[in-house]
């Protein structure tokens, strides 16, 4: 089995505008490789070419130039999509089907054997935390629930590669945290995940490697730690220092030849604060109930 889940060489995509043959270049000479078993982030602002790249990987668009392969097979081939699951951006599903019926429908289309369908469907619905709502019609779901059931339909046929386009867009921090947990779980089970998002902060703690696109071109690519680490700087987080001791530390840094860039209070992210507050409240409520 090829070690690269996705292999893209010199990918270019031009869209024709009108009948005069004017072209809009959405992807420009993209080269990237996603190794199996990674969480790979495709990041960039709106209009950077992320969705176009994903559509080419899915075989929904044909590249104007270059090549794209999934586990060694050309992306345009239908067979290549057997090992692929996809959650679209802002998913919309058939409103009159229940969540379970929806996942079952996609399982059938993906060729899940008949005797395994029920088990697979129940399993993915439980994985995404939708067991209680699975019998309700999809038209009654909230945005977060749609994302979860969308994830379920992407996973029902046990694909090796899962592509998630903006999986946390419009989802509250709790929901986003749950989705992140699911993604980590998928990685632990050996799957490769390609994430596309313009919410860079959310992807920071999730992805192993990222590629950052801008106007169709790759501007940065590599391991997240390597990209974010400042090689020539260190940070110390210190507690319990009085101003005098702080002054001594600053002097020691200067004497050792270092340059103190800044001194600031450390801050948690707003996401982390929100999660902490909600969890505390949930635990308190649980304790009250157990006392009663």
């Amino acid at each position: 089995m090829p070690s690269h889940a996705i292999s893209i060489q010199n990918l270019t995509k031009d869209f024709s505008v009108g009948l005069r043959g004017l072209k809009l270049r959405a992807v420009d000479g993209l080269n990237l490789e996603v190794e199996a078993g990674q969480i790979y982030g495709l990041l960039g602002p709106n209009g950077s070419g992320k969705s176009t790249t994903i559509k080419i990987i899915l075989g929904l668009l044909r590249p104007s130039a270059g090549h794209c392969q999934l586990f060694g097979q050309p992306c345009a081939e239908v067979a290549a999509r057997r090992s692929l699951g996809f959650l679209p951006e802002a998913p919309y599903f058939y409103r009159d089907l229940s969540g379970r019926e929806l996942v079952r429908f996609y399982a059938r289309v993906c060729g899940v054997p008949r005797q395994q369908i029920r088990k697979q469907v129940d399993s993915v619905i439980e994985l995404v935390g939708m067991s209680e709502a699975a019998s309700r019609k999809v038209g009654t779901y909230s945005k977060g629930m749609l994302q979860r059931i969308g994830l379920a339909q992407a996973l029902v046929h046990d694909p090796e590669l899962v592509i998630l386009d903006e999986p946390t867009a419009g989802v509250d921090p709790l929901g986003a945290a749950d989705i992140a947990d699911i993604i980590r779980e998928l990685k632990r089970s050996g799957k490769t995940i390609l994430l596309s998002s313009h919410l860079l902060a959310q992807m920071e703690g999730l992805c192993d490697r990222v590629a950052i696109l801008h106007r169709g071109q790759l501007i940065r690519e590599g391991r997240v730690d390597d990209l974010l680490t400042q090689a020539d700087a260190q940070s110390f987080v210190v507690e319990g220092l009085d101003p005098a001791a702080q002054f001594k530390v600053e002097r020691a840094i200067a004497e050792a030849g270092g340059e103190l860039c800044r001194v600031e209070k450390t801050q948690r992210s707003l996401d982390a604060l929100f999660l902490e507050a909600v969890n505390e409240r949930a635990q308190a409520a649980a304790q009250e109930v157990s006392h009663d």
């Binding site: 899915l58 239908v78 999509r81 998913p91 919309y92 058939y94 289309v109 060729g111 969308g150 339909q153």
Partner: peptide
């Protein structure tokens, strides 16, 4: 319009 075609055509179907 609803892009359900996208989800469906991303599956292994012609």
């Amino acid at each position: 319009d609803n892009r359900t075609a996208l989800t469906l055509l991303a599956k292994p179907i012609h």
